[in-house]
Computed example of a mutant assay.
Amino acid sequence: MPSWPGANSRGRTAAKERAEQVALQQGVRYRRMFVALLGVIVAVSAVVVLFGTVGLFTETRSRPLTPAEQNRYKDEEIARRWQAWPVTGVFPDEVKYLGLDRAQQYARRVGIAPETDCGKGVDASVAGVLDSHGCVTMLRATYVDQTAAFVITVGVAVLKDEESRVSAGEELTQDDRVGVLPVAFPGTVSERFGPDQRQRTGWVGAGPYLVFSTAGYADGRTRAAVPPEEILHSELWPAAKSVGNQIAYFLADPPKVPPCTQGNVC
């Protein structure tokens, strides 16, 4: 017998409602799963951000410098002085030295030479050593002693670092006839000071610097014209050596190191 249309319609409606109810329940489950997964992602992200923030704060906050950091600060500060300081900071107007009977006297700066290549500011045998160890540049200035009887040229050879300076120093000759080339300034007491007038030369190491000194008489006497015993007992070389040592001291004097990474407060 054919079914009644009303009964079939009610069955289809009930089936449709059941299907919609199942779909709704399934959607609710999916939504709950999505919300839970999203919550986990947000929580993990928050933890990562928290740890990152803590790590960044720990890394950037002020703290005491370690001994290694203190030494690195000193080395870097000393190594940049030849550029960071004004030229009058490297070569002061006056430099103290000890004269006869250890009396304190002052050498006066006559002039400062233009910066030059290392090989052009020293004798050839010295130039080879400096070049082989990566000499960066040569700075020179000329002084006269307090009596204006002696002329002294000081040369600062800038090496890459202190290790290079030490290596270069180990290879330098002990011949006191070679070293830095004199710089004469016309119209001053130094105008007659040339390579032949050098009586003695020497050098001292300080940080990444080799500080050379050479001295002669302002009257233009050559080395050959001065008896060796006069040089040995003259005030000339002690004065020149003292001036060079003073400039080396200025350049390598240890700086004051801040106690913390961000100044004086940790």
Rank of each mutant, 00 (worst) to 15 (best):
D161A: 02
R32G: 14
H233L: 07
V47W: 06
R192Y: 07
R10H: 05
A107I: 02
W237C: 00
R18W: 06
V265M: 11
W237N: 11
E69F: 03
P258D: 04
G111Y: 14
V47P: 00
L50P: 07
A107D: 00
T173F: 01
R102Y: 06
F212H: 04
K120C: 08
T173E: 00
A127M: 03
A184H: 11
V126H: 08
R192E: 14
R81E: 09
V48P: 05
L181H: 04
A124M: 06
G187A: 11
V87G: 04
L100W: 00
P86W: 01
R192Q: 15
V226E: 03
V48R: 09
F91S: 01
D219H: 07
D145C: 06
P2T: 13
K241G: 02
T261W: 01
E76M: 11
Q146S: 15
L236C: 01
A68S: 14
A127P: 04
P227V: 04
A239K: 04
Q25V: 13
L181M: 07
G220H: 03
R61I: 08
G89T: 06
G27N: 12
L98T: 08
D253A: 09
G207L: 12
L50Y: 07
E17G: 00
P238V: 05
R140V: 03
V40F: 06
P208S: 01
L56W: 15
G99A: 15
V95S: 10
E191Q: 15
Q83H: 12
G155T: 08
T261H: 01
E235G: 15
A15F: 10
F91A: 00
T201P: 00
S164I: 10
P86N: 05
E230R: 10
P228E: 05
S62D: 10
D175F: 04
A14R: 09
I41Q: 06
F250I: 15
Q199L: 13
V90M: 03
K16F: 12
D117N: 03
D253T: 09
A215G: 13
P195C: 04
T60Y: 09
R221D: 03
Y106D: 13
A252H: 12
G39R: 06
F34T: 06
R223T: 01
R221K: 13
G6C: 09
S9D: 15
V180N: 07
F185S: 02
A215F: 09
P208R: 14
T188L: 06
Y249S: 09
A225D: 10
V54P: 06
Y30H: 14
V257S: 01
S3Q: 14
V166N: 14
V156A: 08
P5T: 13
V158I: 07
Y106T: 14
T137E: 10
R18C: 05
G11F: 10
V178F: 08
G119Q: 12
R177I: 05
R102V: 02
A252Y: 06
Q70I: 12
V90E: 12
A14F: 08
L65H: 07
A43K: 02
W82L: 04
E229T: 08
P2M: 08
P208C: 02
Q197V: 01
T13V: 14
D161K: 05
D196C: 02
L98S: 10
R109F: 03
V136D: 09
